[in-house]
């Protein structure tokens, strides 16, 4: 009984925080736009009883999903988001892995401090951190002033309001999510394995590729998913750092919701985004499960 209660807690969590909101969004995506509060129809009227319920379901249809196929804006935005998210994940991995590696190699007494430094930025609001990038990247910003001062460039670089700024913002924001799981994997690594490899004539670089990287695979995969999934639906970073031509699905969703006041189409866009995300989420789950099985009971 106690065991059952323990299992029930995460499921209840999932039900309340994920399934119920998703069903509400799905329902709105099947509705029609209306000029009312709330701005869609039908709304569930339980007082009308059985007949009301039947009328309610009869009014739902897939029209909004069909609509999304009639305009190439949506597919272009999904593809562009996938591209930005994938490239950002790769960049975060390239930057994050050496940091995690360095942390794992550091003397024991340093590690808590280094860990702290990675987590520290979370103590400031995410929004303020993205805003401060505007100050760094703008034409008169710190970065350009520094580059002009060193003489590396003669004209200020145009970084803010371009896709480059979006990549910088995403990599910066999600870097800790890449570092922490890789660090966790590397920390567990048995150094005797590397010593054995060297004794057997492996160079340090070969040993790194043959032993360290494969053994940290689970951390790499976890880190990549933790960066890729939120980056795909990102709205704040492209809105603040991106330019007018930065096309991301989060911005399209915003326009459907706010400019068109079309909650049903906005919900349809969100449902499809979720379906795109479910594939990597399931892969992630499988990976976790496999790892648990490999580690044994």
């Amino acid at each position: 009984m106690r065991r059952f209660a323990l299992i029930a807690v995460p499921y209840l969590w999932l039900l309340v925080l994920f399934l119920v909101p998703f069903i509400i969004v799905l329902k709105i995506s099947l509705s029609d736009i209306a000029l009312a509060i709330p701005p869609y129809t039908p709304t569930l009227d339980l007082s009308a009883g059985w007949e009301g319920l039947r009328a309610f379901f009869a009014a739902l249809d897939l029209e909004n999903f069909w609509f999304l196929t009639t305009d190439d804006l949506y597919w272009k935005a999904y593809l562009s988001s996938l591209q930005i998210a994938a490239l950002s994940t790769l960049l975060a991995l390239l930057v994050g892995y050496p940091i995690a590696y360095g942390m794992a190699q550091a003397p024991d007494e340093w590690r808590p401090t280094l860990m702290m430094l990675v987590i520290l930025p979370f103590w400031t609001s995410f929004l303020i951190r993205v805003y401060s990038w505007m100050g760094i990247l703008s034409k008169e910003g710190f970065l350009n002033q520094f580059l002009l001062w060193t003489g590396l460039v003669s004209e200020p670089l145009e970084i803010l309001n371009t896709n480059t700024a979006v990549y910088i913002g995403i990599v910066y924001t999600y870097l800790p999510f890449m570092i922490l799981p890789i660090y966790a994997a590397l920390e567990k690594l048995d150094s005797a394995l590397l010593e054995a490899a060297e004794d057997l004539g492996c160079s340090r670089i070969t040993a790194f590729w043959l032993i360290t990287v494969p053994l940290s695979k689970s951390g790499i995969i976890a880190g990549c998913f933790l960066v890729f999934i939120p980056a795909l639906g990102e709205f704040v970073i492209p809105a603040l750092l991106g330019g007018s031509d930065t096309l991301m699905i989060g911005k399209v969703l915003w326009e459907e919701f706010f400019s068109n006041r079309d909650w049903p189409v906005a919900s349809a866009v969100a449902v499809i985004l979720l379906m795109i995300l479910i594939v990597p989420i399931i892969l992630f789950q499988r990976n976790e499960q496999k790892q648990r099985e490999a580690e044994g009971p």
Binding site: I33, L35, D71, L73, S244, D245, T246, L247, V252, E255, S259, N260, R261, D262
Partner: peptide, 17 residues
């Protein structure tokens, strides 16, 4: 609403190409 969608779509096109 129908015209609003046309206007927003045109604006997105103008802004993002």
């Amino acid at each position: 609403a129908r015209v609003q969608r046309v206007v927003t779509r045109l604006w997105t096109k103008i802004k993002s190409g």
